[in-house]
Write a protein that binds this DNA or RNA. Structure first.
Lengths: 68, 68
DNA sequence: TCAAAAAGACAAGTTTGTTTTACATTTTAT
DNA sequence: ATAAAATGTAAAACAAACTTGTCTTTTTGA
């Protein structure tokens, strides 16, 4: 799964720490998601999308390899 | 978090078992999500949305209480 | 009405997400 | 050039997602 968290943060000029506070997780959680260390729960992903005011599909996307 | 998995399955006439196979998880996982036992990962939620050919936001929705 | 299929439930165990702490590196602004 | 802010990284511990297995209940259709 790909994500455009970093891009979206850049667009809206929000730091990892600030995003973390706004969605109620630790900064490292945001960082880990951003560098692809793991996939967030749907709850967290929806919250992130909500903070950015975009749809989830705009930030998180399936890849071919996710189906194998 | 609310979800309309059951509704969507009904619409498309797909059983829990069939959906489970198509997204690559156990039937119990689908069942547990449906009855609100737990929240799926973003990967799984995206796959489910993909099988149903709708956007994730159409099936999984945040509630007020998710923010507290 | 009866059997088969589908769905609900539950417990134990494994895997993965998340937190916390702590430190190193990079970026930004002065 | 330097300090401060932001980001990267990593390990240990805990919480939540997911599996497997088994059993019960509900729904469906012949």
């Amino acid at each position: 799964m790909k994500n455009f968290l970093k891009v979206e943060r850049a667009k809206q000029n929000i730091t990892q720490a600030e995003l973390a506070v706004r969605v109620g997780v630790s900064r490292q959680t945001i960082n880990s998601i951003e560098i692809g260390k793991y996939v967030p729960s749907t709850l967290l992903a929806l919250k992130i999308a909500s903070v950015f005011e975009v749809s989830l599909d705009h930030i998180f996307m399936l890849e071919e390899s996710d189906w194998s």
